[in-house]
Design a protein around this nucleic acid. Structure first.
Length: 583
RNA sequence: GUCCCCGUAGCUCAGCAGGAUAGAGCAUCAGAUUCCUAAUCUGAGGGCCGCAGGUUCGAAUCCUGCCGGGGACACCA
């Protein structure tokens, strides 16, 4: 339950009551009303701007309007105190019993705590990674992969029906390059001297096994043959090999996408023509000549009549070509067909996760989606660069020298969970520094550790509790039913308030398509927890396990269990497994 | 030349679809350990939220224009 939504609903009811009794005008617009946690805890547990927002419509001064609302709010069982503050905020202080009840609610819900019905089971398509199948995934892909996957989890938790997809760019000229590179390795495993890999081909060792496999499958059949004899065969096999490499890389990160859609298949099936015909029928296609780009003019610019999509009618800066000079379709045309396909499969909400270097492509794709279906909406999330460091020193990478760092390298060195968490410690559109040394450090500076440590500490206390109280029932149903009125310390209530905000955070992060907020939330929650833990250092009566008071201990264990569940629930959105002890 | 992203403490960054006195971590300084893991915690200093206008009860947040940094700009993918 989102407690803020709950109280907002109660507030609306009160407004209706006041309107019915003639104390307020009827039909006030309440959209702008918010009920949210105040920044300053001194302002109570919840604050609403209702009086400020309604004052003008109701023609009543904000503070006077607030005064009308107070008695009704004060009459609620959950409310302890209400005060009017500043220009007309209403600050609400809730009864401790309300917060205490939250704890048993959390423990009873377990990992599903925070699940929301916000999405109303709406279908959402999340497309991410979609790297060219020409080699293993590198660090840059890792960020997009983790981001997309966490976003999918987040949307699922928020009540959307999510489909995760990968668009295989297997139709372009880079696939020919892949095939030629693999062919070279094929010659090599036949004992031919290939020397240095020529400029323009892929030099990576990962193609050697592909050459080997080609040899095993085809023997020497293609040796000394013209390209025409082997290109399409090798292209097919090499692409398949690369896709299985990529899929196993993704698996190492714990990522599984349901749909892998091939660009090549779009060309073969006639879906591109179909999509373009749809657009043409709607009047969005024409034959025309583009103006040369201002400023930087390409050397080989020549005016040429092309098949163009009227992207400018849908917010783009120029109209976009759908066919190349050789008559084949552009990448954009195929991508239109792909999104056309998504729409036909019933998706109105689509999210694409791209690298920031594709920023220039966003407007045209959104324009195309809008042109295809005015009910469809495409959000594009751009992921900025990952800068690698080791002990503060930048890690030098060179594709030519073959020293680029792959996703596999990162996961092998620091582990899946660390990789995933760290990739979400920045907003997607901000660059991210990834320091191999720092991310495995055990300090507050390292958010993964800090959050995991909090979870491990809870598990440690629960283990200790069983030693100290062998007869105490510490399973979840017992803890949920404990007498929680014993939870009265400030730090305990602060922790509960934080946990109570989890459902709200899930909803707002899901609406904004920003999974990094979950990572920050967990860090703050962990901080709240560690603070409470350390109170016990100053005052033994503040420890969780009080030997002479089993009832109090059980209440505190329920609190800790709730904290661990919220952490685990948040980590599961990030795709990270909570640990029971630190090693 | 056009478009997109960014500009918040010395450094790295949050800031919740406009709210009250702008927050963390690191670094600096001062403290806490007979103890469930001190791998942690407490406190202090540190800010024209790039600049200038606008919108309104109220702006770091929305709009416009500048300045600075990054990225992208017919037919590649």
């Amino acid at each position: 339950m989102n407690v803020f939504k709950y109280f907002r609903a109660l507030l609306e009811k009160e407004l209706e009551t006041l309107a019915a009794s003639g104390n307020l005008p009827v039909g006030l617009k309440t959209d702008a009303i918010t009920v949210e946690p105040p920044r300053d805890a001194a302002h109570g547990d919840m604050a609403t701007n209702a009086a400020l927002v309604l004052a003008k419509q109701a023609a009543i001064k904000p503070r006077d309007l607030a005064t009308k609302l107070v008695p009704g709010l004060l009459a609620l069982d959950e409310v302890d105190d209400v005060e009017i503050a500043g220009p007309g905020f209403i600050n609400i202080r809730l009864a401790p019993s309300f917060w205490q009840g939250c704890v048993s609610g959390i423990v009873a819900s377990g990992l599903s705590y925070g699940d929301s019905t916000l999405g109303g089971n709406e279908a959402v398509n999340v497309e991410y990674v979609s790297a060219n199948p020409t080699g293993p995934l590198h660090v840059g892909h890792t960020r997009g992969a983790v981001f997309g996957d966490a976003l999918a989890n987040l949307l699922t938790k928020a009540g959307y029906r999510v489909t995760k997809e990968y668009y295989i760019n297997d139709a372009g000229s880079q696939i020919d390059t892949l095939a030629r590179s693999a062919y070279l390795r094929y010659c090599e495993v036949h004992g031919r001297h290939i020397g240095d890999i020529p400029e323009g081909l892929y030099p990576g060792d990962y193609l050697i096994p592909v050459g080997q496999a080609l040899k095993e499958k085809y023997g020497d059949r293609f040796l000394d043959e013209e390209e025409g004899a082997w290109l399409s065969v090798v292209r097919e096999d090499a692409t398949a090999a690369m896709m299985s490499l990529i899929r196993s890389d993704l698996e190492a990160l714990g990522i599984t996408q349901e749909i892998f859609h091939s660009e090549k298949a779009l060309h073969a099936s006639g879906e591109i023509e179909a999509a373009i015909e749809d657009l043409r029928a709607a009047g969005h296609i024409y034959e025309g000549v583009l103006e040369p780009p201002k400023g930087k003019k390409p050397d080989d610019w020549e005016p040429r009549e092309q098949t163009l999509f009227r992207a400018t009618d849908f917010g783009d800066d120029v109209d976009r070509p759908l066919k190349k000079s050789d008559g084949t379709y552009t990448y954009f045309a195929a991508d239109i067909a792909y999104h056309h396909d998504k729409i036909k499969r019933g998706f109105h909400a689509m999210i694409d996760v791209w690298g920031a270097d594709h920023g220039g492509y966003v407007k045209r794709m959104q324009a195309a989606v809008r042109a295809l279906d005015d009910k469809a909406d495409l959000d594009v999330k751009l992921c900025q660069l990952v800068r690698l460091f080791r002990a503060g020193e930048p890690v030098k990478m060179s594709k030519r020298a073959g020293t680029f760092i792959t996703m596999r390298d990162v996961v092998d060195e620091v582990g899946r969970d660390v990789t995933r968490f760290i990739m979400l410690t920045r907003k997607n559109d901000a660059p991210l520094d990834f320091d191999f040394t720092k991310v495995t450090e055990q300090s507050r500076d390292n958010p993964v550790f800090y959050v995991q440590y909090a979870h491990a500490r809870v598990c440690s206390v629960l283990r200790k509790a069983q030693e100290l109280f062998p007869h105490m029932d510490t399973d979840d149903s017992a803890l949920a039913g404990a007498d929680l009125s014993r939870l009265t310390r400030d730090g305990e209530l602060a922790l509960i308030r934080h946990m109570a905000a989890w459902p709200r955070l899930v909803e707002s992060a899901a609406e904004a398509h920003e999974p990094h907020r979950v990572a920050f939330f967990l860090y703050d929650l962990a901080s709240e927890f560690h603070t409470l833990w350390n109170r016990g250092n100053d005052d033994p009566s503040d420890r969780f396990l009080i030997e002479e008071d089993a009832g109090l201990t059980q209440a505190r264990l329920a609190l800790l269990r709730a904290a661990a569940l919220v952490i685990a629930s948040g980590l599961s959105v990030l795709g990270v497994v909570p640990v029971k002890e630190m090693r």
